[in-house]
């Protein structure tokens, strides 16, 4: 696999959210506004980068039996770094993401990439993989946030989208999150399946 493909695979083909169904909790919870969604995406990407690089750098050293505890310590350390940085430089964001900053630790994407990619590949490949996965995650968050903020508040980044549009509050509320992601996943499946059907012909 070329380096570019490693990066690209996380974006669309193996998009962690829409295709692999990983890390869904923060996606639904923090996609109520573009700002929060973007913040969560960047925070998770940072942790993913850190953990992938460290794990792949130590892949010959970590004994197999204790690899999961080792991964968890590494990931938790990076999450705490993010918590500290957010509190110091983006206090507003840190408040609005709240509970979901520490919960990056248990974001399945990160442990999954450490276990299935970083522990078997070189540092540079793991870095690219993390970057791709992180960008895919952020893109998914932004897409969801765009739909939910646009329809639910009628705004984008606090600016009105269409003057006079009466927002459908349900889209901002939890049901809106579930419905939106369900239908988006359906859409991505449809795209994937359509491609397959064409190849068969």
């Amino acid at each position: 696999m070329s380096k570019w493909q490693i990066f690209k695979s996380g974006l669309f083909k193996n998009n962690p959210v829409f295709i692999l169904y990983l890390g869904l909790c923060p996606v639904l919870a923090t996609s109520t506004s573009i700002r929060d969604g973007f913040g969560m995406g960047v925070a998770a990407t940072f942790v993913l980068l850190g953990s992938n690089v460290i794990v792949s750098a130590m892949r010959g050293v970590i004994p197999r039996k204790v690899r999961i505890p080792c991964f968890i310590v590494v990931i938790a350390t990076f999450v705490t770094l993010v918590e500290l940085f957010l509190a110091a430089y983006q206090p507003e964001l840190s408040k609005s993401l709240g509970l979901f900053v520490p919960l990056i630790v248990v974001n399945c994407i990160i442990l999954y990439r450490a276990e299935s990619f970083a522990s078997k590949n070189t540092v540079f490949s793991s870095f690219l993989d993390a970057l791709g996965m992180g960008c895919g995650f952020t893109l998914a968050l932004l897409l969801l946030a765009f739909i939910r903020e646009g329809l639910g508040k009628g705004t984008l980044l606090g600016y009105e989208l269409i003057p006079g549009f009466e927002p459908a509050v349900i889209m901002i509320l939890p049901p809106g999150a579930f419905l939106t992601i369900g239908l988006l996943m359906g859409f991505f499946n449809w795209r994937k399946n359509r491609g397959k059907a064409l190849k068969c012909d």
Binding site: S96, G152, Y159, V169, L173
Partner: peptide
């Protein structure tokens, strides 16, 4: 506050200042 976005969290909502296109 960490109230429900769209409902309780509106206690901190600021009126939109013009449309996105102007911005």
């Amino acid at each position: 506050q960490q109230e429900t976005p769209g409902l309780g969290a509106n206690c901190e909502a600021i009126e939109a200042e013009g449309t996105l296109w102007d911005a």
